[in-house]
Design a protein around this nucleic acid. Structure first.
Lengths: 354, 354
DNA sequence: GCGTGGCACTCGTGACCAAAGACTGCTAAG
DNA sequence: CTTAGCAGTCTTTGGTCACGAGTGCCACGC
């Protein structure tokens, strides 16, 4: 503690400390065992004795980069340790040729319908990451309106289907009395399509729906049905999330404790929590990482999440996310998520693939 | 072994054996502990001594109704024991007033769109059963066609949306060259709707699509697009299954073993396996139960499943399923599933609710 | 000042063992 | 047919002990 600054321990790490920290992260990620000074000197070529490492490790612990699970154990990285590793120390790790090929080929035959697409991608990522992968569909309010169809199902009931360039965005059952003719519905559909084409869904909400209904000479009761359908379409209440790979959590030594596992599983099943966990990453560019307590839920304080946004042709943003133990192979998962986002972007922006 | 028949042990149980077997099932379901003769005489009013119970239990074991986990433990029911209990011994257990109310009220505000509906129901059942609940959407090939819309997205790409009375059944992106006019698409849509209304989806596949396309004077390339969309709509490849409540498995003592838990989780995540597990129950009427090895997958040999079909207004059949440990409260779960199916049936058949 | 060898100390882990407890099956008697 | 009693078996639990891993610190040497 002879350094001048007020928080000397958070100054930039010297070269040796940096190397030791990286090595500890690397080793701990690989083995899931706390790393001791002996392991370090024996398995890696440090050029100094274990006693020196011990001193360095003690300082790293003081600096908040490492913690000791118990007195006679080695050290493991703290949240801050991982953070430093991810931000400053680790080298990017490109995917293996085989993995890269798999990611690229995944979309060759893929659907363009968004729901199918995110489910398929989630499944692939779950397998390849050996972690929990989940996919958040793009916020819908900026998708481009393509079509609305009011369909008569019976004399008094109908279905409104709202379609965007990415597929069906919403459907809404409605009823009316007195009866409305199928012709009315068709006429109104046609008029809406003519007037609204090219707008975003959000803009639809502000359109003069009542005016259109009058213009089409249709029953005024339909106004509220259409409005409800549009509201439904932009609603972010039903966030679409596909997830896959929860069973991999069971392989992780840190989740042998069933209580921990249970609360994590609960989070993963609650789409809302998942959404809140990563929602702020929609605005980022490229991969970003949240480590341990940086996640806003106590239940996943022992997890980390890698996220990458993906974009559709209309510039809408969805999110790829991979959740695993803090002890995750960050570099590889970031590459995996990035490459997947790239492939997905390509697939979504190229109208000639299907 | 003094009875005359070839399999005397499977003859109808006498009254006392029946009572003992029921009590053992009851007790084991409640406590998850093997049941011994002492527990039985002390907690339940048997009127005979534990030695007598021991003799009876030995015979029940010989008859295949009970097994002993190890020599100095009590007995637990075998698959056959549970089967006998479910088929012959147990009394139906109506839901509590509160639970019944919850099931009834669940659909008051519910959507009529099938996807939303089964997801909501699965969530409710997951909570109320404290087991894994899953919902299989009705086979689609018998749903009634309501509408098809061919929508131009760009000069060379389009989207076909197939709608049934239960909501959107399928969407299919297509492309064509040379370009096709939006008018062509509209004209063809109108003609298809006029010609096909009221048929089942399965029948659509046999319709003379090429003829319709000619009749509408539309580009013949569209034939294959429509065909693909229809095929998509009836395809049972993408079975829709919603599931909920996996975290409850962790509470069960029998799944503390992570290996077991893992393989079950894998099954639950694989929709295909879930489907195969219960597919034959589509044909049943009312609740049915599969116990342990009666399930075709070794991974769930320690589980049981309760299923109940539900029906839509068109007479289509979906499935409610609850999967839990063999040691599940059969009577209650059967009531829960049944009542839910009833409410769902009502909701789906009544066109005035929405 | 920095690195190093050595050493005492702390803890968690796994092995081993003994005692306790839970049930059973069997036998002999009512 | 039922029952009390008893011997036998097997799991569970708790405790002790030795071991090993790893640390922190100190004194020494460059």
């Amino acid at each position: 503690m002879k350094s001048p600054g007020p928080r000397p321990e958070f100054e930039k790490l010297d070269k040796r400390k940096a190397f030791i920290l990286s090595t500890i992260v690397y080793e701990y990620v690989a083995t899931a065992e706390p790393v001791g000074s002996n392991t370090l000197t024996q398995k890696y070529n440090l050029g100094v004795s274990s006693a020196t490492i011990r001193n360095e490790m003690a300082e790293l612990e003081l600096g908040g980069y490492l913690v000791q699970p118990h007195a006679s154990a080695g050290r493991i990285p703290s949240d801050a340790g991982y953070r430093t590793y991810v931000d400053q120390l680790m080298r990017p790790e490109p995917l293996s040729a085989e993995d890269r090929r798999r990611v690229r080929d995944e979309f060759r035959e893929a659907s363009r319908e968004l729901g199918d697409l995110i489910e398929q991608t989630a499944r692939m990522l779950g397998q390849m990451s050996r972690s929990v992968a989940f996919m958040l569909a793009p916020q819908r309010d900026t998708q481009t309106f393509a079509h609305v169809q009011l369909i008569a199902l019976s004399e008094r009931t109908g279905l409104a289907v709202v379609v965007t360039s990415l597929g069906v965005a919403a459907q809404h059952f409605f009823e009316f009395s007195p009866a409305v003719s199928a012709d009315d519905l068709t006429r109104l559909s046609d008029l809406l399509n003519a007037r609204l084409r090219g707008k975003t869904l959000r803009e639809l909400l502000r359109a003069d729906l009542a005016g259109f209904v009058r213009e089409a000479d249709a029953a005024s009761e339909l106004t509220s049905a259409i409005e409800a359908a549009f509201r439904n379409a932009v609603s972010s209440d039903d966030i679409t999330i596909a997830s896959s790979g929860t069973q991999h959590l069971l392989d992780q030594p840190e989740f042998q404790d069933l209580r921990k596992l249970r609360s994590i599983l609960r989070i993963v099943e609650e789409q809302r929590s998942l959404y809140d966990l990563v929602a702020d990453s929609f605005a980022t560019d490229g991969p970003s990482v949240k480590i341990g307590h940086e996640l806003s839920l106590e239940e996943v304080a022992e997890c980390s999440v890698v996220t990458v946004p993906y974009r559709t042709a209309d510039g809408m943003v969805g999110l790829i996310a991979i959740l695993g133990p803090r002890r995750m192979p960050y570099a590889r998962l970031m590459s995996l998520a990035s490459d997947t986002a790239d492939s997905l972007n390509l697939h979504l922006s190229n109208p000639d693939t299907r």
